[in-house]
Amino acid sequence: MRFEREKVQAVIARYSEDISWLAELDCPSVVYNKGTGPVEGAVVLPNIGRESHTYLTHIVRNYPDFPEFVVFLQGSPFFHMEEGADCRTLNALIAEHVERRVPFKGFAWFRMVCDRLGRPHQMADPSKKGRWPGWGKDIPVGKVFERMFGQAAPERFIASAATGLFIVRRDRILVRPLSFYENGLSIIESDPLDAENTGHAFERLWQIVFNGSSNLNPS
């Protein structure tokens, strides 16, 4: 099934990944390129704030003109999906959730529970030492939550889109005002190199961002 732009659009946060798989994707896409080397038709962004910066930039720039569903993906999404996943797997997931009109769904193979500091996490993985300034630090999930929502953070968070791969229905985006997303973007931009792991924190908060409810219980 091939979706039109008015129905489904994919937003791709690319750094250096091979995105040739997009040729097989069953919906139109917009690529935001933060890496080296030109990508035809891509929107060029500064390399700051991880994919969280890309996603919030897209929302702020396009608000309120979204298709019925928006799919947010990293440039290489299949690593965090079920074993053996490829673009056919992704197409099937998109079609299933569009048909069921699911308001929000993470595409990673797992969910995770973390505390206000994002624990447990792998920020001190020796193999990743030096890759970004925030290596070895905790993730300020609680702090970012409080800056986004203006209330005390809960003790734990159940993250259903921890890898930044998810589909969200238009009405779940629009239930929050543009100013809400502008605030989120400013929070990301205040930590451009992810020295405090702010971008990582958003990976654990997307399901709350898009729950559109006055009841912000993350469970």
Rank of each mutant, 00 (worst) to 15 (best):
R5C: 08
R14M: 04
Y15H: 14
E17P: 06
I19T: 15
I19Y: 05
S20F: 09
S20A: 12
S20R: 12
D26A: 10
C27S: 09
C27W: 00
C27Q: 01
V31A: 02
Y32T: 10
Y32K: 12
N33F: 04
G35T: 11
T36M: 15
V39P: 06
G41S: 04
V44M: 10
S52C: 06
Y55P: 00
H58V: 00
I59F: 00
F69E: 01
V71F: 03
F72W: 05
F78Q: 04
F79D: 07
H80T: 15
E83H: 08
C87T: 15
R88F: 09
L90Q: 04
L90R: 09
N91D: 12
I94M: 05
E96V: 14
R100N: 14
G106D: 03
A108F: 04
F110W: 11
M112H: 12
R116W: 06
P120M: 12
Q122P: 12
A124M: 14
P126W: 06
S127P: 08
S127Y: 06
S127M: 13
P133F: 05
G136I: 15
D138Q: 09
V141G: 02
V141T: 14
V141N: 05
G142D: 07
K143R: 13
M148C: 09
F149P: 11
G150A: 08
Q151M: 13
A152M: 13
P154H: 07
F157H: 01
S160V: 09
T163L: 07
G164Y: 00
I167D: 02
V168C: 00
R169H: 12
V175T: 12
V175H: 02
L178Y: 06
S179P: 04
F180W: 02
S190T: 11
A195K: 14
T198S: 03
E203W: 00
E203G: 06
R204E: 03
I208R: 01
I208Y: 00
N215P: 05
N215E: 03
L216Y: 03
S219A: 15
S219F: 14
